Amino acid sequence: MREAAPPSPPTRLARTSSLVLLQPTPLCNLDCSYCYLPSRELARVMSPDVADAVAHTVEVWSAHHPVTVLWHGGEPLATGLPRLTALLDRFPPGRGHPVRHAVQTNGTLLDDAWCRLFVERGIEVSVSIDGPGPGARADRGGHDTTGRALRGIALLREHGIPFGAVTVVSDPCPRRAVELHRWFSGLGCRTLGVNLVERKGVNVRSIADEADPAGFWAALAACGRADPRMALRDVEHALRYVRAEVAGVAQRLAGQPVDPLPMITWDGQVVPVSPDLAGFTSPRLGAFTVGDVRDVGLAGCLARAERVPWVAEALAGIDACRAGCALFAYCRGGQAANKYFETGRLDATETAFCRSSRKLLMEGLIHDAERVTLDT
């Protein structure tokens, strides 16, 4: 009789990260109906000593691998050009490998001065915009902001700045996928990321019951094959997993330590995994932070993270996914934020987000591949 395979060792957290998220301000000038952020009316700005503490660790890490610092809000441009420039100045160019910067913006505050900064510093830009027609991205007066974001994109193009886009979709279906691909490709986007509406944070909405996520992903994949000029973040992530399975390396890669995705909030709090938990507190587990980056540095916060109860519960959730899901090597246990906001626990397994944006995405790719096979 064949012996059972030995149990996998508990999930560990890697000690460095190639991506660090910084929240220069929680403030946002928009009031999107699906926004999950709890403090988007708070006009506060990251202080230089917080940036210094992060920059020190980033410089050390850059001796071993490249590091990207992603300025993520709130709306980063609401920090103001002089203050955000001053924060950027705290970071070194890199020690052996480059330290790069990127910004995720709603595009409505872009002007020539911001564009000049992006060009001078080589900052990568991604714009959050939801596609043609009025939608959920409104300002605080309830007015649609699509036109203002498009004016910002026009400035990026005038200055020769490549840009990507992130769109939030509440009605996934094949028609919407085709419409979005045509529209974003026409704008000249370099890459497109799609977030289906999630019940998360202060947002209690989710995608409509009559939605067709699998059909949406299948149609988006088909559009990407027909017109490959624009990379599709989510489709390419899934295809990388498929290629790893075909090569026989997916399970080995899945056994490696989990890459942290550390978020450092404007006031220095470090959220080492699932950055969408930033700013929230659990009645049972306390605030979703492992401490102030100014106390022990970013590397020190990551080193002690596994001993913090809420992080330990999140890692236990990854172990539970590993034990029970055939697609674990693809999603690596999902996001703890989705688990918490859907179930109240971080050690849950399948979530609505997991089904709509991972399992049904994979199902959509299979359907698209089957159509290609039949056509040939």
Rank of each mutant, 00 (worst) to 15 (best):
R121F: 03
S126L: 06
S126W: 02
I129W: 00
I129P: 02
G131N: 06
G133N: 03
P134A: 12
A136T: 15
A136G: 15
A136H: 15
R137L: 03
H143I: 13
D144G: 12
D144I: 12
T145Q: 07
R148K: 15
L150G: 04
R151T: 13
G152D: 04
G152S: 11
R157A: 15
E158P: 02
H159W: 11
H159S: 07
G160L: 10
G160Q: 05
I161H: 04
P162A: 14
P162K: 15
G164N: 10
V166L: 15
S170Q: 15
D171K: 09
D171T: 13
P172R: 02
P174M: 05
P174W: 00
R176V: 09
R190I: 08
T191N: 11
N195I: 06
V197S: 04
E198D: 09
E198R: 15
V202Q: 06
V202F: 03
V202N: 01
N203M: 12
N203W: 03
R205H: 09
S206G: 13
A211M: 06
D212Q: 07
D212C: 04
A214M: 03
W217S: 01
C223Y: 00
R225Q: 03
R229D: 05
A231S: 14
A231V: 04
V235A: 02
A238H: 05
R243D: 14
